[in-house]
Computed example of a mutant assay.
Amino acid sequence: MVRLPFTGPVANKQERLVLVTGAGSGIGRAIALRQAAAGDIVIATDIDLAAAQQTAKLAQGACEAYALDVTDPAQGQQVADTVIARFGVPDILVNNAGIALGGAFLDQTPQDWEKIMAINVHGVVHGSTIIGAKMVERGQPGHIVVIASGAAWTPNRVAPSYSASKAAALMVAESLRTELAPKNIGVSAVCPGVTRTQLAANATLVNSGTPATEEFRAHIADAQARFAFATPDMVARAVQRAIRYNLAIVPVNFDATLAFVLHRVSPGLMRWICSIPTMKLAESTMRMAVDRMPASIAFHRE
């Protein structure tokens, strides 16, 4: 297929097969729904099969649900083999599955680090290795998307393991892009800022070894819903742009873009800014924002 400069390898292909991990909710669901509505055949995977099936029901287009724990490469291979036997090799892989973990560096245990790295980094590696190898073997154009985060450029005292995991995921995408470019396979890292999902509300939160209270979780969920700059559909649109134009890195919305710029222009300033928030300050700020600001004040309204 002849394609114009600055267009992605599969930008003009019709009825593409798109596999999305973590598609049971939030950003993953928005990506799956948007790709299905665009005429693609979507494979919505999630560790929670019922959630993936709900995504498939909501899709206005072809969408199939499969259970997938991205930390299990054997299960990843099994799902890939099943999908390929039925539909063929995916044209697009979106590595979206991820978790968050909050708490000071010295409060987080080795088990905390292993858990977040297993999903946010190794999950990306497993999916990209399994599907990427099939793309190369097929010898046709393809595209791999990694949902990283603006946290990849944000050293901080509140979620150091999350930032580290997303920085690693970003570098996986950049390294893979250099390797697969000669194979006509694009690789993009899409980096959202704070997004209106349940990621933070469902996160593991530690404070001197003590789990966060349910009240604190409720404040996080409320604050994220009201004050996040980005919506899941904004991220899904960014994924479409990344695929259409084969973009290497796509910051999503104001906060991620600001982090991207500051990290490059003045890393020292970025570190100083990020050294200010602590878990205690973050908790008190969210309480004040939720309790004192009118409910009508929000960055996004439905």
Rank of each mutant, 00 (worst) to 15 (best):
R3H: 07
F6N: 10
T7S: 13
G8Q: 13
G8H: 14
R16C: 02
V18K: 05
L19M: 08
G24I: 02
I27V: 09
A32F: 02
G39V: 11
G39R: 08
D40K: 05
I41A: 00
I41M: 01
A50G: 14
A52K: 02
A52F: 03
Q53W: 03
Q60R: 13
Q60E: 14
A62S: 15
C63S: 02
E64F: 05
A65R: 00
A67E: 15
L68M: 09
D72M: 00
P73L: 15
A74C: 03
G76H: 00
V79S: 01
P90G: 08
L93M: 07
V94F: 08
L101A: 11
L106N: 09
N120P: 15
G123N: 04
V125I: 15
H126N: 14
G127C: 01
I131C: 06
A133S: 13
M135P: 15
G150Q: 06
A151L: 01
P160E: 06
Y162C: 11
S163L: 13
K166F: 02
A169S: 03
A169T: 00
A181C: 07
V187I: 12
S208F: 06
R217S: 08
A218C: 13
I220P: 13
A230G: 02
V235D: 01
R241S: 13
A242V: 00
Y245V: 02
N246C: 04
L247T: 04
A248K: 10
P251I: 01
L258T: 03
V261A: 07
V261F: 00
R264W: 09
R264V: 09
V265Y: 08
V265I: 10
S266R: 01
L269G: 10
L269D: 03
M279S: 07
K280T: 07
A282K: 14
M286N: 04
M288E: 08
D291L: 06
S296N: 00
A298N: 01
